[in-house]
């Protein structure tokens, strides 16, 4: 039986009838074709499916779709504003923090939630907070550096 879901995704109000046993990631990918959110394990163990819901980074792969009711969802597709990359995206590209790229959208969303909450994280905090994101390509070092650089830029932007 389908249930009515009203939610906001990347600023767009969406109303759909959905199977409540569906996971949020499948709704985003299969129904809305927002395929930037990836599935790496579908068990909440790799972070590739990370999105931001009501300001918090969450794993969309183990989340029942109905949890999105009345929520504000931000996916990787909603991060670039007016053709301008978010500083985290930009630093990931410049800093070699991307290789195969499959973990990248999740990592960037996780990093955004982190920096929204803690604009000046230490290296250790970055590592600890983002350790739910698995990357098999980079060795993580360049990701850590990119997040710290983005944090610095975001602080500067705020000061300006």
């Amino acid at each position: 039986m389908k249930e009515r879901l009203v939610t906001t995704v990347n600023g767009r109000r969406i109303e759909r009838y959905v199977d409540p046993s569906m996971r949020l990631v499948d709704f985003l990918r299969d129904e809305l074709l927002l395929t930037g959110t990836k599935i790496g394990c579908k068990q909440g163990e790799c972070g590739a499916c990370t999105i931001i819901m009501n300001g918090t980074a969450v794993l969309s792969c183990i989340m029942p779709v109905m949890k999105a009711m009345d929520a504000e969802i931000l996916t990787i597709e909603g991060l670039e504003k007016d053709g301008k990359l978010h500083p985290i995206q930009d630093e990931f590209i410049k800093g070699g923090a991307i290789q195969c790229g499959f973990c990248t959208p999740g990592f960037i969303m996780g990093a955004k939630a982190l920096l929204d909450e803690n604009p000046s994280p230490t290296s250790e905090e970055v590592r600890e907070e983002l350790s739910g994101h698995i990357c098999r390509c980079t060795g993580y070092k360049k990701i850590e550096d990119a997040v710290l650089k983005a944090a610095e830029r975001l602080r500067e932007e705020k000061d300006d």
Partner: peptide, 12 residues
């Protein structure tokens, strides 16, 4: 609490 899964798990 910080040891359960990962921050992404702890968030929900």
């Amino acid at each position: 609490c910080k040891k359960v899964g990962s921050r992404l798990i702890q968030n929900v």
